[in-house]
Design a protein around this nucleic acid. Structure first.
Length: 649
RNA sequence: GCGCCCAUAGCUCAGUUGGAUAGAGCAACGGAUUUCUAAUCCGUAGGUCGUAGGUUCGAGUCCUACUGGGCGUACCA
């Protein structure tokens, strides 16, 4: 069921005799924004009229005459400069709704020609705790996979774990020098995490020490520049402002660096360790290189650590209700990397430059490096190997990379290189997204400037959801309504839903401001509001002692009478369109917008149309069917976003 | 320097290959509860869509320049 698509087909037939590009023109059928213009409008007459050099209204009339839609719509009306306005017939709407009301998929059909998608998302470094930066990829990727599958596509979700990089060099070095054997025995994940943070902190310290002179010089240069501009006869105000900003940025950065140094030097333990391990940075790289070169000890440690790391991230995936079909990390492709480089060299697609093996690509200033001068491979190499593997393994029509926007240049190069390599038939898409910002407009960090751990984030959202639920029960005097276990269950569901939905409801390409208060708001476009609406509908069935299942199998029918019933009915039939829209640009926000709209439409209906106390049995069961369908669309829609519903809130 | 992205109501954001009078939510103000959960609903107010040009029947949407912001930019991922 996709009303717009059905109407477009009718227009295609009507337009065919008039234009060569009837498909493009027929695509200009869309829902109206104002109910005065009917339910749908076609805007194709104006652009066609321009080409035919005829009056647009005349063209519109001609299109309307050739249109065979009397089964679906009332006679079309021509309005304004040449809009063709359509109003769906109530009997047709009722018929479609009654089919949807009995359909397990709420009237959404699968696609006619399924495609195969590989979706690459989440991809954390397994040696580090997952943090706030992993939410968007994980949640958006999961929602895209669920939606693709629901519409009948074949999906391979793949978690391209970072399990082979420098971070393991850090853990290995840390294990060899700083491990607390008892702690590792008892809580290996925590101990590994501690080792990672410790070693990372020390390497960071030395890096900061090296950076200070450079940063001081930069701050000095900027200061001099500011003074030079000021001293000029006619100071350039814009340049001065820009320069002053750069100066304060340079000073901030310098201060930050000095603070990090101070943090180590003021700690007796850390400063002693720093003094004892002055070569730690190189040593970490050496441990990484040994791992990559097959050193038996390091490989043994790596394979001992890895399962622990994966247990850690799996706990979070379980809580987020996110699953993967395969989890081929970087290590999986390690043996395939030399052949990638050889192949590129052999085909003349890559050449040596400044000691590195480079692929020079049209439209990019710098080349893509696939082997460093020291012989090591880069993530570009691994990404190319991954494409080759995926094509050989699954022969996909598309590979989607749900990765933040900062890597757009990398993917631009990667896709260009892949096309040169012969993968030019496959859709390669960087499904990019923006940064999560704190309330200061800067990337979201803790007060002390650390990245925010994902687990703590989930805990906090759940804790706040719990508080909201308790407050609400208290306000209503419902304290006896649910027991502690139920409240815990509901707050886990509501808290995580809020977190996911805040992310999904935002246009993915823009940065967004993180706020617990906003995501857990009870009104507005939040998961909490949608979950509440669902619970309200469930409340009707509970109160009326009506079994939805029984209702569906009964002979009751949806009959549209009131205007609010009709509006709700039409909105319900547009679920499939919303899902199609999600897949056009891989934007789950199209679905959240639809669900929010549906919910508001439902509440309008709910306010003006009594259900259980309807005037007669026919109206009552018709409205109950509308309620049931609404609940199922909300539940299904939220499920496609990876969000669960609860029956009572 | 070069490249990519962004700029819409006081705040956070929608705005579907260019369509009719630019929309939500929050905050503000006013209303609705003998009635299926008031965690709701209805109404009012709030805008030179960063600036200036251009394309056309029509521009928040496309093009150009400018201003302001974010990100990236040869051996990290």
């Amino acid at each position: 069921m996709n009303i717009a698509a059905m109407l477009r087909e009718r227009f295609l037939t009507a337009l065919a005799p008039l234009a060569g590009d009837a498909a493009e023109l027929s695509a200009m059928v869309r829902p109206t924004q104002d109910p005065r213009f009917g339910d749908y409008q076609a805007n194709c007459a104006m652009s066609l009229a321009k080409r035919l050099k005829r009056p647009p209204r005349e063209v519109a009339e001609e299109i309307a005459r050739g249109l065979d839609i009397s089964d679906m719509c009332q006679p079309p009306e021509i309005a304004g400069p040449g809009f063709i306005n359509l109003r769906l017939r109530d009997d047709w709407l009722s018929q479609q709704l009654n089919a949807a009301a009995r359909d397990e998929r709420a009237g959404v059909a699968g696609v006619n020609s399924p495609r195969t998608f590989v979706v690459d998302y989440s991809s954390p470094n397994v040696a580090k705790p997952m943090h706030v930066g992993h939410i968007r990829s994980t949640v958006i990727g999961d929602a895209i996979c669920r939606t693709l599958r629901f519409l009948g596509h074949r999906v391979i979700s793949d978690n391209h774990l970072g399990d082979w990089g420098t971070q393991f060099g850090m853990i290995i070095y840390g294990y060899k020098h700083f491990v607390d054997a008892d702690a590792f025995q008892q809580h290996p994940v925590q101990e590994l995490s501690r080792l990672y943070k410790l070693v990372h902190g020390l390497t960071d310290y030395f890096e900061c020490l090296r950076d200070v002179p450079r940063l001081e010089a930069r701050a000095g240069d900027k200061l001099a520049e500011v003074e030079r501009i000021r001293a000029a006869e006619k100071p350039d105000a814009a340049a001065l402002k820009r320069c002053q900003r750069q100066l304060s940025e340079a000073n901030e950065k310098l201060q930050e660096t000095r603070d990090k140094i101070g943090a180590v030097e003021s700690s007796p333990v850390l400063s002693r360790l720093a003094a004892e391990h002055p070569q730690i940075e190189q040593a970490v790289l050496d441990e990484t290189a040994k791992l990559h070169n097959g050193d038996a000890e390091n490989r043994r440690l790596w394979s001992e650590f890895l399962p622990h790391c994966r247990v850690e991230i799996q706990r979070l995936y379980d809580r987020l209700d996110v699953t993967f079909d395969v989890e081929h990390g970087e290590s999986f492709y390690e043996e395939q990397l030399p052949s990638v480089v050889e192949d590129f060299l052999q085909r003349g697609l890559a050449r040596e430059s400044e000691g590195a093996i480079c692929v020079f690509l049209d439209g990019f200033e710098s080349p893509m490096l696939i082997r460093k001068k020291d012989g090591a491979f880069l993530y570009a190499t691994s990404d190319l190997a991954t494409i080759r593997y995926r094509v050989e393994q699954w022969n996909p029509d598309a590979i989607l990379y749900v990765v933040d926007h900062r890597q757009s240049e990398h993917f631009g190069k990667l896709f260009a290189a892949a096309r040169l390599w012969g993968y030019d038939k496959i859709e390669l898409a960087h499904v990019s997204f923006g940064t999560i910002l704190g309330e200061n407009g800067r990337p979201y960090k803790t007060r002390s400037g650390d990245t925010v751990g994902l687990e703590g984030l989930l805990d906090e959202a759940v804790r706040r959801a719990y508080r909201v639920i308790c407050e609400n029960e208290a306000a209503k005097g419902l304290s006896e309504a649910s027991n502690e276990e139920q409240r815990r269950h509901i707050s886990e569901s509501v808290g995580i839903a809020a977190l996911k939905y805040a992310d999904l409801s935002q246009n993915r390409s823009s940065d967004y401001e993180f706020s617990y208060d906003k995501m857990l708001a009870l009104t507005g476009n939040t998961a909490t509001y949608l979950q509440y609406s669902y619970a309200r509908v469930q409340g009707i069935f509970l109160k009326g002692n009506v079994e939805a299942e029984t209702l569906r199998t009964s002979s009751a029918r949806i009959e549209l009478q009131a205007a609010d019933e009709r509006r709700l009915g039409l909105k319900l039939l547009e679920f499939g369109q919303a899902l199609d829209e999600v897949l056009i640009d891989y934007r789950p926000s199209a679905l959240t917008a639809y669900l929010f709209d549906l919910t508001q439409t439902f509440f309008n209906f709910y306010e003006s149309c009594p259900v259980l106390k309807a005037d007669n049995e026919v109206t009552r069961s018709s409205r109950l069917l509308l309620c049931d369908l609404t609940a199922r669309v909300i539940r299904q829609g939220l499920q496609l976003l990876g969000i669960r519903v609860v029956d009572r809130m």
